[in-house]
Design a protein around this nucleic acid. Structure first.
Lengths: 156, 156
DNA sequence: CCCTGTCTTCAGAAATTTCTGAACATTCGC
DNA sequence: GCGAATGTTCAGAAATTTCTGAAGACAGGG
């Protein structure tokens, strides 16, 4: 049975790598806390205590990760607080959502294709457009395939 | 025939969306400049002029995008300057490289799996590990598939 | 060897992001 | 409706990132 300290350190370590991957600090710490928690759900107060930060920071972090689709609110009878838990499909959802940023890029590329005449730049832009379009089309199938595969071999 | 101003604006616009996608500002502006350039290659000086920034900034930006595998140095006879050009497979390369950050995350998750006993946290960590492992395995095939498909229908 | 053109490094300035804390809003039980 | 518990907002402080400019390193021609 491993210690509480070790668990927290592993959580902080994961948060750091998520920051390295582009996520914002407090959001990363929050999602790591959810991921590593043995509780069914956490409240804003729980998080503030676990992370040692102000209520304001927690409010912002929760809004962010909820917006990303990683956590959801659940209703707990007899509690006035807002309880949140990590969604089961959080990571596949996150992967699918990257699409919104990819479509933004794609829009900008399309504008570029329209803004330059034939030539090297035009060719490069077309290539980029084609690849990102391909990714957007393929991602849902990829996720689907993962879920099927996982259903196939349910437990380790 | 579209104007120079329009081309620059489209480039800056794309740079901004890349920043939104997590890339650093000057690196994004540099890669956009390469993408939109009609020249075969650009030098640090060209970039400094095109972007209106200092030589120091350009040096850092070039190092960054070269490190990402998006541009490569080419040797131009009779020129003492270092010429760079965007690699043909820049975007597929970039996609494949994301793996290094994904593997970092994966390492942290592995540590987490080891650090918690059986329970909810353990299950969540395993799920996350399985999904990211799946992605890492699938990505090369995805890129391969794109390239094959593109070879099939060469030009629009 | 020196000189010139080119690129890199790095300390500090500037800009941006992130966090806090306190005031305010909301909700629910009574 | 009132009061207590909980959550949100926002202005400013703190921390971090990014850019610049000047000094220095390096390479090649003469």
């Amino acid at each position: 049975m491993t210690g509480e300290t070790e668990r927290r350190e592993a959580a902080e370590q994961l948060a750091l790598t998520l920051v390295g991957a582009g996520m914002q600090r407090m959001g990363a710490r929050a999602i790591a806390a959810f991921l590593f928690s043995e509780e069914e759900s956490l409240t804003a107060g729980d998080l503030a205590q676990e992370l040692g930060v102000s209520a304001g920071s927690v409010s912002g972090a929760i809004k962010m990760v909820a917006q990303m689709g990683l956590i959801e609110r659940i209703y707990v009878a007899g509690s006035r607080r807002e309880h949140f838990r990590m969604r089961d499909n959080a990571w596949t959802t996150l992967y699918s959502r990257q699409h919104s940023v990819v479509t933004d890029v794609l829009d900008a590329v399309e504008k570029g294709v329209g803004a330059v005449g034939p030539g090297r730049a035009h060719d490069r832009l077309e290539y980029m457009r084609d690849f990102y379009t391909f990714l957007i089309n393929e991602a849902p199938m990829l996720v689907e395939r993962f879920e099927q595969q996982r259903r196939g071999e349910p437990r380790s």
